[in-house]
Design a binder for these strands. Sequence first.
DNA 1: CGGCAAATTGACACATCTCAAAGCCTGTGG
DNA 2: CCACAGGCTTTGAGATGTGTCAATTTGCCG
Lengths: 243, 243
Amino acid sequence: MAITEYFIRYLQRRDEIGDKDLARLRAMKTEHVSFAPGEVIVPVERIARRSCMMLQGMSARSHQLVGRPNERVITAVHVPGDFVDLHGFVLAGLEHSVVALGPAEVEFVDHDELIDITETYPHLTRLLWMATLIDAAVHRQWLVAAASLRSSAHLAHLLCEIYTRLGAVGAAADLQFTLPLLQRELADILGYSPIHINRAVRDLRDRGFLRWTGTEVEILDWAGISRLARFDPTYLDMEKHRR
Amino acid sequence: MAITEYFIRYLQRRDEIGDKDLARLRAMKTEHVSFAPGEVIVPVERIARRSCMMLQGMSARSHQLVGRPNERVITAVHVPGDFVDLHGFVLAGLEHSVVALGPAEVEFVDHDELIDITETYPHLTRLLWMATLIDAAVHRQWLVAAASLRSSAHLAHLLCEIYTRLGAVGAAADLQFTLPLLQRELADILGYSPIHINRAVRDLRDRGFLRWTGTEVEILDWAGISRLARFDPTYLDMEKHRR
DNA sequence: CGGCAAATTGACACATCTCAAAGCCTGTGG
DNA sequence: CCACAGGCTTTGAGATGTGTCAATTTGCCG
């Protein structure tokens, strides 16, 4: 199996990749696996031996709350092209699990491959590093959104971000996309109760910002919704730049 | 000027550093600069040419809200030993500024030094990468805390984290530390109004968890306060581990 | 001693949570 | 083809946490 072309697009959007680096990427051995909605893709573990890239569908980093077995917090959502738990390669392990949101397909990569890359391909190493830093920038933006936006605007921000990230790798266009998330999952992501999420969805619908039936979302007024969310994609670092 | 020994302690706590790597670290040229409370240490900029390490005092990553000039959100707090804006080396720039909290001293490092390290010292590179990933793990934990804790517990979590991080580099002990933060700054960090922060501080005091006068904090009941905050330092990744 | 910024307190408004119930899809089995 | 079951979505009403505004007190520094 070969590495997902989505991830190569993710990188090429942000920097030039030399022929040798590209060849090394394409030579990475990966294992393709499919998951049903809600399945655990990567469990909490102290020592990880492989990491996974998102190929189809979406996944989430899920933090179980101690002493409250029915509650969890989702701190990241991943779309095709994301190297989901690349950080598990450098950290001592993951303090969260990765779960499928809707049906999902991923490619697992052995850490042996990553060690080889970091020993011999410095520029490629910086690009992998970059991918984890963009995740961190997204975390920061979520903190900003949580502290500064009310529920409807907060939800709007998430929608703007996901659409932009899908669009960046060619997985969405024309202001339409598939969002395989239950309202309960949106609640875990944004830190509200499911009931409040429902009201926020209705609010965005009532304002004419979007159509949303089942898992299909169509944004009707991008200018309006991104203004409400104060969405500025700079943090996604999507410009080409020498790294 | 030589690199801060605090940062070396930060790394050595988490992995063995070979003699060559250590020598390379100590050979890094740095520029020592002091800042007054509230001063901008690193402005928002599209292309950074150097990064800074915290030497004394504290600093914060401050996000200015567009259209609301008097509001900001703080997404990270840095203590001695932290490589504050190392991520600016790999990203196209910073989407936030770094400001001094109280009087602060930092060491600036040219990115030329970091390029050299990433080209020639793979293990040291992974350790620098690790430092940025621990910052990201802290971001995630802040997201979890924001979504799952009420104000007093949320404030308690911040105090537990800062004390633990200070202790990890030998900058605090005996459950006492200096916290050079105004209540207004705590509000920007935790996403509450300054008035509500005040109530949370009083609550923690009233419960007998701590003494807090001016910038001096003394924790009287570590077990109690860390239970309230559901504080588990695993995310700080403070165990030795081959990276 | 005076002045100013920060910390503290009170009262009320608003956002969000919880509990409870009703409506709506979708898959399944008769 | 219909009836049912189960999970998800939607709605309502009251409780709680937090924000805002206004005023007072404290503490520091000139």
